[in-house]
Design a protein around this nucleic acid. Structure first.
Lengths: 241, 241
DNA sequence: CAAATAGTGTCTGTCAGACATTATTCT
DNA sequence: AGAATAATGTCTGACAGACACTATTTG
């Protein structure tokens, strides 16, 4: 294969990418939002084989000519299904084995995204499911196995980040943000401790206005400082009780 | 492509994996150890194009017939270069773009491993480099860009895990473990706080014996409880000062 | 006024940082 | 004894949990 006098340029000129079987390499995005006090996941119904007509994460193959990077490919899948262009987007990891896709060895790179609620575009094949419903569906490929793992990451990171701020519309009140944390964690938080933590971290900034929305004292509006989008606290929120 | 009456079985029977260009999909492993109070990285010299003769992380393509999973493929690369069969092995993530490999679109799945020091097998093309040296080399592919990112993950996880225990031979003394933390972090830790933290977490177990190694009072030996290999503390070690 | 929601005061417990002190070995 | 290393005692400060309290709005 490599002769003694061959140069790198010779090698590349002669290189045929189809000479070897490469695994399939899809990119999938688990998109979360919060709506009506419930954590929801966006799923699309598959129109093609394999697993035609089953629900799945938005995703697909990298377009080698149009996508410059993996992250760009993931963002593209997300924007296509939601219209959102600047989500919180994080790579969960890669999952690869011989059995997850009936077509053969497949390595998916899984991302997850957090966006404020919006109805999918009218022409879309995508639908929001509550997390509980999504967990009971028999999703395409190994997506039913992956979903709980992605949720686990989300729940564990919520204990030391401001991730729930990305699930709601900005600006928001502290009570709204606290409810977002509570929906993700599935338990209540102490109001005072919650506010003190955000206050001393300095991750939020007040926006001049107040709301009134019905009864009660109006709340101040805040937004996440953009440079704090991935802020990490030194301590985790404590365990319940 | 999909006709109305086609079944999943028909589809799979007709499916040709080579009909589409798949990106290249290597698996690479960044292997760390601790030797002579220094954090070291294992690199191999490339014998083939591209980037012949440059140093690189151990890695290569998945063997679709012999590797059942991505993790098995990573473990296989590691064992081949070090002889170690049960390292601490964690996926760092996937990196994919059109430019990282001159042969074309390539998605690497990057793992990192922590092992107690051992010389590479005699017939091996692998060599330990101090981290500082490795960071100055011009490595193959984008490995010089990736190395600092992997190190960043290591350093940040050391603040709330027992990862350095995997870098040293077991059993170990508390002083040895503390030195391992200090080598990774590049700063000194408070002895009492360090011990109290491990004590109250209950992640170590004493092994009956004591050592003497030269001067001073002999220290007790401990090993990491296997079920605590991925233990997470609720609080991070504080920032220096 | 009462109900509802926003926001604060303050006590307690946990645990990391700092550093002084004691313990056990060797030469 | 003195040097070297291991191990402990204990004070302080940061910050989370708990919960009672005050503040501001609408009806």
């Amino acid at each position: 294969m490599t002769t003694p006098s061959q140069t790198e340029a010779d090698f590349l000129a002669a290189y045929d990418p189809r000479a070897f079987d490469s695994p399939l390499s899809p990119v999938d995005v688990v998109i979360f939002t919060l709506h009506q006090q419930q954590l929801k996941v966006l799923l699309v119904r598959r129109h093609n084989f394999p697993h035609k007509d089953r629900w799945a994460f938005p995703g697909g193959f990298v377009d080698q000519h149009h996508d410059a990077t993996l992250e760009a490919a993931a963002l593209c899948k997300l924007t296509e299904k939601t219209g959102v262009t600047t989500p919180y987007l994080e790579q969960w990891g890669a999952v690869g084995n011989a059995t997850r896709d009936p077509r053969g060895w497949s390595i998916t790179v899984l991302y997850f995204a957090l966006i404020p609620f919006a109805e999918p575009p009218a022409d879309s094949d995508a639908r929001w499911f509550t997390l509980d419903d999504a967990l009971t569906l028999n999703l395409a490929f190994d997506h039913s196995e992956l979903l709980p793992k992605v949720v686990e990451r989300l729940r564990s990171k919520v204990l030391y980040t401001v991730m729930p701020a990305h699930l709601i519309a900005s600006p928001f009140t502290l009570s709204e943000l606290q409810r977002a944390y509570e929906c993700v964690l599935g338990r209540e938080l102490e109001k005072k401790a919650f506010r003190r933590r955000l206050e001393t971290a300095g991750v939020l900034e007040a926006t001049g206005n107040s709301t009134r929305e019905g009864a009660g004292r109006p709340a101040a509006f805040y937004r996440l400082r953009p440079e704090c989008a991935s802020f990490n606290f030194n301590r985790q929120l404590g365990h319940p009780g």
